[in-house]
């Protein structure tokens, strides 16, 4: 109430501002950036004993990551993540569309149904999937009554893909829904009014306008899927290892922290690349629409 105007600008209240900003900054520094830097340093070192690591500045760990075995694992991980994202998109788009056009009441229930798995432990959900897919699980039992199977549903690439889609679907549905929900309904009505059917309206109006939301959804599905550990570990077979499983093995069984660190950073760089890619696409679209 001083009327000087300075009280209106909270940035000018230096003390509280420094405190508000400082605490999380310190937290981030101590528990995120410093450990990350240590791991980054490890990736340029080599193990000299059971727990000792000498930071020698060597690039040999990175050289090893580009060997055929690990390139294959990276390719496989990208493949799994891409397939998961595409399947999530194919399944998630109609779901998001239905939620968008549902009544207020149904909308709440449907969103709850999407969110519910989030609140259940991933491990429990994964074991539940295993119980369902194993040879004596109810899927195979049901198929057995029809005279089919038992099919090998567990411990293979199919199970991993199914698990990844199941786990990551909400990550795609929610941003998609929020993009679709923001769409001006009168645009869709205008399309109908001008003679277009529903399919054409979705193709020419809904998808282009929801594209930023779709890209966001794709990115935040693809990135966690790429780094999946538990799902391939529990549902996969010997042939469905993803990069996170290999990293875990370096840190534990192989006790090769430097190499594990190098692999981790390659994974992180891949993630950065994806984010940068999305940024470039978004910028280009912005420019195109401004031109």
């Amino acid at each position: 109430m001083s009327g000087s105007g300075t009280t209106q600008r909270w940035q000018d209240a230096r003390g509280p501002f420094a405190l508000l900003f400082g605490v999380p900054a310190l937290w981030l520094l101590l528990f995120f950036l410093v450990p990350l830097a240590i791991v980054w340093a490890y990736s340029f070192g080599r193990s000299t004993g059971l727990t000792d690591i000498a930071i020698t500045g060597t690039l040999s760990n990175y050289a090893r990551t580009s060997s055929a075995v690990y390139l294959g694992i990276f390719a496989k991980s990208i493949g799994f993540a891409a397939l998961t994202t595409v399947l999530c998109l194919v399944i998630g788009f109609p779901i998001a569309l239905v939620i968008t056009f549902a009544s207020e009441r149904a909308k709440t229930l449907l969103l709850l149904a999407i969110m519910l798995p989030f609140w259940t432990n991933l491990l429990i959900r994964t074991y539940a999937l295993m119980a369902m897919l194993r040879s004596e699980g109810y899927v195979n039992t049901s198929l057995g009554w029809l005279g089919i199977g038992p099919l090998p549903l567990l411990h293979n690439n199919f199970a991993v893909t199914l698990g990844l889609v199941y786990v990551n679907l909400p990550f795609l549905v929610l941003p998609l829904y929020s993009a679709l929900d923001r769409l001006d309904r009168s645009l869709l009505e205008a399309s109908l009014d001008l003679g277009a059917g529903h399919w054409r309206t979705i193709r020419e109006i809904v998808i282009p306008l929801a594209l930023p939301g779709i890209l966001t959804g794709v990115l935040i599905t693809f990135i966690p899927a790429l780094g999946s550990y538990l799902t391939p570990d529990l549902l996969g077979g010997p042939n469905s290892q993803m990069i996170a499983n290999v990293i875990e093995r370096q840190f534990k069984r192989a006790n090769d922290w430097p190499f594990g660190s190098a692999l981790s950073f390659i994974l992180m760089y891949l993630t950065f690349l994806c984010i940068a890619g999305q940024g470039i696409i978004a910028r280009r679209r912005e420019k195109a629409s401004a031109a």
């Binding site: 001006d184 009168s186 645009l187 009505e189 205008a190 399309s191 009014d193 109006i205 306008l209 629409s289």
Partner: peptide, 10 residues
């Protein structure tokens, strides 16, 4: 129809 918001495709 000419919509109140015009509904021009952006």
């Amino acid at each position: 129809m000419v919509f109140q918001s015009y509904a021009v495709f952006p």
